[in-house]
Amino acid sequence: MDGDGIGDGIGDGTSDVIVVGAGVVGLTSAIRLAERGLRVLVWSRDPAAGTTSAVAGALWWPYRIEPEAEVGDWSLASLRVYEELAADPTATGVRLVPGVHADTVLAGLGDWARRVPGLRQLPPDEVPGPYEAGLAARLPLVDMPVHLEWLRARAAELGVRVERRAVGGFAEAAAHARTVVDCAGLGARELAGDGALRAVRGQLVLVENPGVDSWFTAADKESSETTYFFPQPGRLILGGTAEEGVEDLVPDPATAARIVARCSEVRPEIAGARVLGHRVGLRPARAGGVRNERDPAPLSGGGMLVHNYGHGGAGVTVAWGCADRVAELVTGVRS
């Protein structure tokens, strides 16, 4: 095994659990399992930089995710972790940054919102841009390339190995470990045979930051176009789109121009910012919400299969809460 916890071969039969997928959902699940004393191996078809997680704008907020009854607790559990990680933003990539959710009212949110420290309704004259309502908060904003590296390093400290390997089926993983955890994201359509999974295309524009130090979002659940900007080290991320069923990974210039125009309505200085690049990712959304459960059918040899996928655009927001649930399902012990 290399010093950074990354291996090149197949599992050697000494793992208790194989986690399929090395995005934020897979790595947090692996960490929680390893913290319970299990020997964990992660199989990933893509490098961390090639996962959907790496493209995410990554503001903590339960955005377009179900089931509502569980999302609040998962989100708040993750919020507590990010608040701790924000003490060392250079290493973890997590910062607490102020901002505004426009077109949002506190009364329209679940009980979880009342447990978010500092979340408050703004008077109309304090809401930026052409919006009449908004919430202000200081929330975790995650620089995903840095954070994924931190997750990999934390996993390695716990003895987790990460191997680049495309998985043809869960039986393949079951030959190397008694328990398999499915964190394959959109890949679970084929691996788990789940027709409820669908891609939701998100396009971003990266620009030089003209001095913006707060985040902003305005997301209409009924529209495929959203408006947001997130200040990250060395860049400002502009968004976005939420195009259901679209799987084209090529950035569209017309879409990019509309993204810049919408963000410029809120902060005019964005209009003249130099474009650094474009990003497209496919969010793994699922009709019926996140699947976080033990599969009723045992694997070959009697092993256990646990699913943890379908997080849509809120994988970062619920990652640690869902990972806690995975650890409970695998070990039978609540944290």
Rank of each mutant, 00 (worst) to 15 (best):
D2N: 13
D4C: 12
D12Y: 08
G13A: 02
G13D: 04
T14P: 05
T14L: 15
I18W: 08
V20N: 07
G26D: 00
I31S: 04
L33E: 04
L41V: 00
A56G: 11
W60N: 04
P62Q: 08
P67I: 02
L76T: 01
A77R: 14
S78A: 15
A91G: 03
G93K: 08
V97G: 00
V105W: 11
A107E: 15
D111Q: 13
D111S: 15
A113T: 06
R120D: 00
Q121K: 08
D125V: 09
P128N: 09
G134Q: 03
A136T: 09
L139F: 07
D143K: 09
M144E: 06
P145L: 14
E149I: 08
R152A: 15
E157S: 05
E157A: 10
L158A: 03
V162E: 14
R165F: 04
G168E: 14
F170G: 05
H176D: 11
A177K: 01
C183A: 13
A184N: 14
A184I: 10
G185P: 06
A188T: 08
E190R: 09
E190F: 06
A192L: 01
A192I: 01
D194L: 08
R201F: 02
G202H: 08
T217I: 11
D220E: 05
K221T: 10
S223R: 15
E225W: 11
F229Y: 09
Q232W: 02
Q232G: 03
P233L: 05
L236N: 06
G245Y: 10
G245A: 13
E247K: 07
E247T: 14
V250K: 10
P253L: 01
A254H: 08
T255V: 15
I259Q: 11
E265L: 14
V266N: 04
R267Q: 15
P268N: 11
I270H: 06
H278A: 00
R283D: 03
A285F: 00
A285W: 05
R286N: 00
A287H: 09
V290H: 05
V290Y: 06
R291D: 07
N292L: 15
E293D: 14
D295R: 07
P296G: 05
A297D: 14
P298R: 03
G301M: 07
M304I: 06
V306M: 02
V306W: 00
H307Y: 01
N308F: 04
T317S: 14
A319Y: 13
A323E: 13
A323H: 12
A323V: 08
A327I: 12
E328G: 01
T331Q: 02
